[in-house]
């Protein structure tokens, strides 16, 4: 009996995450290769300063990527994350300026972000619209709300207490708090996504919603809460940005959603739902970040950067398409 059980679980180790881990290993190889090549091309590349800058640049976006990846796995998408990041920032900032202490203001900022997610979840699961259109509308509406609250001008928050600013600007043993928060969020959700029962339901729902319903899974609830989670994490990112910049700009985060979706997809999340890992998505983000950094160090014109990033996305999605076509 014991032997019987052992054999299949070994097979699981080989098969279960094979595609995903292949993808992750591939990304790591590409990133390492790029880093090695860059270390020859530029003396500034392989320095802690440069790495720290790169990590800082994608740490906060990385928190948003976590939520987006889970939402992609359930079969959804959220175009409003850039606006929600900004909204959380603007609401917290405005409340602080109105006299609230920054911690309470931030919690409220994250709370209203969750409410935006709940509103989108309502339109998706109860009204029956799809995620794309719902979040497209939310993107525009929430951006509008940011402009209304700030009357179009950035809020200057230099009066934020140092203890709060430290979240975004401080560091411990030369490791910025921002990076620590990022690592903790990623570690928690990567673990939960692999191990927690609640998140297993996310995979069932994204893989085959009908079969999930026919397994007694309340797929509408699952989709609702994942939508809320994605917006909440965007809200968290918003207040960290506020602490980092000491300002709240009503146009901040425009276009961020595309970078985030691209990272998740390069990391193996499927727009059809059912597959994706947090670790992969973060690697996707890292790849985009290394490329950006490389292009800057190589003095490539900014105008080329978006084009090259777009090509990387197209290549990643094409590879994915062929892998899946082979499978079926």
């Amino acid at each position: 009996m014991h032997a019987d059980i052992k054999a299949p679980s070994e097979a699981r180790r080989i098969n279960f995450a094979r595609l995903a881990s292949m993808r992750e290993a591939g990304l790591i190889v590409i990133i390492l290769a790029l880093c090695i090549a860059m270390s020859f091309a530029s003396p500034h590349f392989l320095t802690w300063g440069n790495f720290r800058a790169m990590l800082m640049s994608f740490s906060i976006e990385g928190i948003v990527v976590v939520g987006m990846t889970i939402l992609l796995i359930v079969g959804g998408i959220d175009l409003s994350v850039g606006s929600v990041v900004c909204f959380s920032m603007v609401v917290s900032g405005a409340l602080f300026l109105a006299g609230l202490d920054p911690w309470t203001a931030s919690l409220i900022g994250i709370g209203v972000s969750a409410l935006i997610g709940a509103a989108m979840g309502f339109f998706v699961t109860v009204v029956g619209l799809n995620h794309f259109i719902t979040s497209l509308a939310a993107m525009v509406i929430v951006r509008g709300m940011c402009l209304v609250i700030t009357k179009g001008t950035p809020l200057s928050l230099f009066t934020l207490p140092p203890a709060f600013k430290a979240i975004g600007q401080g560091s411990f043993n030369n490791i910025p708090y921002v990076i620590m928060i990022f690592v903790v969020v990623v570690a928690i959700f990567d673990f939960l996504l692999r191990r927690a029962t609640a998140f297993r339901k996310v995979f069932y729902t994204g893989s085959n919603e009908k079969a999930a319903q026919f397994s007694g899974i309340k797929t509408r609830q699952v989709k609702f809460w994942v939508t809320v989670l994605c917006s909440t994490l965007a809200g968290l990112a918003g207040v960290i940005y506020m602490a980092r910049f000491g300002a709240a700009t009503p146009t901040f985060g425009a276009g961020m959603e595309l970078n985030i979706i691209a990272a998740a997809v390069i990391g193996g999340a499927s727009l059809n739902g059912g597959s994706g890992t947090i670790f992969g998505a973060i690697l996707g983000m890292a790849l985009l970040s290394v490329v950006t950094s490389s292009l800057i160090l190589l003095d490539v014109s900014v105008y080329w950067q978006d084009m090259i990033k777009g090509c990387i996305l197209l290549a990643a999605v094409s590879i994915d398409h062929f892998l899946h076509r082979k499978k079926s």
């Binding site: 098969n15 893989s207 085959n208 009908k210 079969a211 999930a212 026919f214 499978k327």
Partner: peptide, 9 residues
């Protein structure tokens, strides 16, 4: 269509 999750273990 609704019996199994084809791409899952």
């Amino acid at each position: 269509g609704s019996g199994v999750f084809l791409d899952m273990p």
